[in-house]
Write a protein that binds this DNA or RNA. Structure first.
Lengths: 358, 358
DNA sequence: GACTTTACGTCAGATAATTGACAACAATTG
DNA sequence: CAATTGTTGTCAATTATCTGACGTAAAGTC
């Protein structure tokens, strides 16, 4: 990852300070505390930090403290000696040791158990750790970076986070603002992601219609960049036309927008038909006229084989289905059913007879 | 297509969109999240997706995350090294490794433990996994498809499901509507299943009395397609007469329905149609088994009409597609192509000649 | 080189599908 | 009531489709 990937985080002016601080802090060994809502790209920022540090050639070891039960987390962080607890069949080094010389990234540190906080505090202060069930402690040379989406000051006030640890961690605070607070970034990022997925898929790059732009900017993005990236990927796959219109956006976004001004966005009819051909999917050569609104895909050989049928049986089965359906539609009137199917009535009768139908 | 038919499509938008999306998504490697009530046939949909993908010749590995205890699940998914835990007698590869090159289907992912969610997240993001008790991590090339009957957004809000994982999984959401929301489908499916069991049993096909039809349509089908299939099977075995009357239906259905005379009598006459018929689904923790029903892949009359084709032309078109595909697969070797299709070589040649193919 | 295997195309006889003609029946209409 | 319209089943003639047998050629094996 080079620094250009930081663009993924955004370009908004509120980030300018952030990046400047990052440049200054990276080469040092200071502890850093990253705050920001979920999905704002904290890990990305931290990775960038690591890569800009002197430790870039050493390990970068992320660990999500919020997701791991207390007992496991301790052994995960500090390792354990054989027999330390029931399932500790053998000695295992912890993440701190694995990160030796490099950086450890304690994500969601706000979730961490108070008891463990003490041990982390010790690791920061003394630069040494002790394995679970271990005897002595061992020195480690690890840079510590932590992140959380909680407001740690409040957690401290509420007694859920140790004040001393907070101050140790909060040497350099880096705050990643939420996407909704970075007006221009939404569009920049969207285009960035669209471009990225375009490259992956080989299809034409998607453009944003003016209405879609408005809607995207008006949305609050509770999932922040992650949600946006996710949407961009989806659009890259699902969008038919060359342009993303309101119709392509999820209702979640549209309903939040609710601006009458935006509603008249009706895609020009001509465009719709003109772009239909881009449709993917036809596994064959697509000689056959593409289905228009066809909510259906042609069965293929794999389908056939899945039923262990031969060509004939397969077509036969399909025919039977169609016969039934036609009869159903025609309420049992064979005359009409035959009409629907575009075959002679007598032919239909023969076919039915052959199958003992009706 | 005239406007009345458009209305009809409108009624069944859910499925129509679903299939359109499926068609588009299948050939990509995007992560897909299938939601839908239990019994709607999620597994079947996913199998279809796999068969439509580039990975169709590679493994399809389903695993029901809800059915396996947490500790076992991790080792099941990621494998374990010898001695990793008490019963880890020997090293074993996990499902991810077994699925190498193919697709892994994580059913009931909503039930998954938060800790495991992190590991899955890592698998998605980094495309690498680590065996239980293992040291290094290993790269895997696996497409991930997940399914759940929970509302994951709510689960996220409740803190029972990781937001980041949700966004990673939810790249392409596919929602299978409940059977009760697909009015026309109930009867079509019932007949489909009756037919299927009829063939199995060799007895005469059962017909549905008008009252029974009404009752079936009015019922809410909490167990969805699975419940319907069960009922059809039971009826096929237990019904004496040639026709299924109210008396044959379980009281569960009748009591919910009340007086059938009050029910509106709306046979889908010219009403075209549910584009979809869904087979069934779950086979437990899912040993790799051949797809069972797969009524899905079948086109129907509305499709046929959409192409303005008669039955014969329609089947012909389909046949031609299959011929082409088989030839393709056989690299032009007619002998093998015929083999694949389960027809005589000479027959194939005739068919090709008729169409001026090859 | 002799032998086996595999692939290919043709053709005539066997099989199956399709259709138009015919007759019967019911519902509707005048 | 009789005429009209629409539906249905049967059947034999026509057409199409499928198949097995035969002859050939190329590639692989011994």
């Amino acid at each position: 990852m080079d620094s250009s990937e930081l663009n993924i985080i955004g370009q908004h002016t509120s980030l300018a300070d952030l990046f400047r601080t990052l440049e200054k802090v990276a080469p040092t060994d200071s502890t850093v505390l990253v705050t920001g809502e979920s999905g704002t790209g904290k890990e990305l920022l931290v990775r960038a930090l690591h890569l800009k540090s002197k430790r870039k050639d050493k390990p970068f070891v992320p660990i999500n403290c919020g997701a791991i039960p207390r007992e496991l987390l301790e052994s995960e962080l500090f390792g354990h000696e054989k027999g330390a607890f029931t399932h500790a069949i053998r000695t295992r080094p912890g993440r701190f040791e694995l990160a030796e010389g490099g950086t450890i990234f304690l994500d969601e540190i706000g979730e961490m158990d108070l008891l463990l906080q003490v041990k982390i505090l010790r690791a920061i202060q003394e630069r040494e750790i002790e394995r679970v069930g271990g005897q002595g402690s061992r020195k480690v040379d690890v840079r510590i970076i932590a992140a959380t989406n909680r407001d740690l000051e409040k957690e401290v006030a509420a007694g859920r986070f140790r004040e001393d640890l907070f101050y140790r961690l909060n040497v350099i605070p880096l705050h990643l603002p939420a996407l909704r607070d970075r007006d221009g970034d939404v569009l920049t990022l969207t285009e960035h992601f669209l471009q990225k997925f375009y490259k992956k898929s080989g299809r034409h790059p998607l453009k944003l219609s003016p209405q879609a732009r408005k809607a995207l900017r008006a949305y609050t993005w509770p999932g922040n960049v992650r949600e946006l990236e996710n949407l961009a990927e989806r659009l890259s796959i699902l969008c038919d036309g060359p342009e993303i219109g309101l119709k392509d956006l999820p209702s979640k976004i549209l309903s939040q927008v609710g601006d009458t001004d935006l509603l008249p966005d009706v895609e020009p009819k001509a465009a719709a038909t003109a772009t239909a051909k881009i449709g993917i999917g036809n596994n064959g050569d697509g000689q056959v006229a593409p289905a228009r609104d066809g909510a259906w895909f042609w069965p293929d050989i794999s389908t056939m084989c899945a039923h262990s049928l031969g060509l004939k049986e397969f077509l036969d089965t399909l025919e039977e289905r169609l016969l039934r359906e036609a009869l159903d539609k025609a309420a049992g009137i064979k005359n009409q059913a035959a009409e629907i199917l575009g075959i002679k009535r007598t032919t239909l009768i023969e076919k039915l007879k052959k199958r003992n139908l009706e």
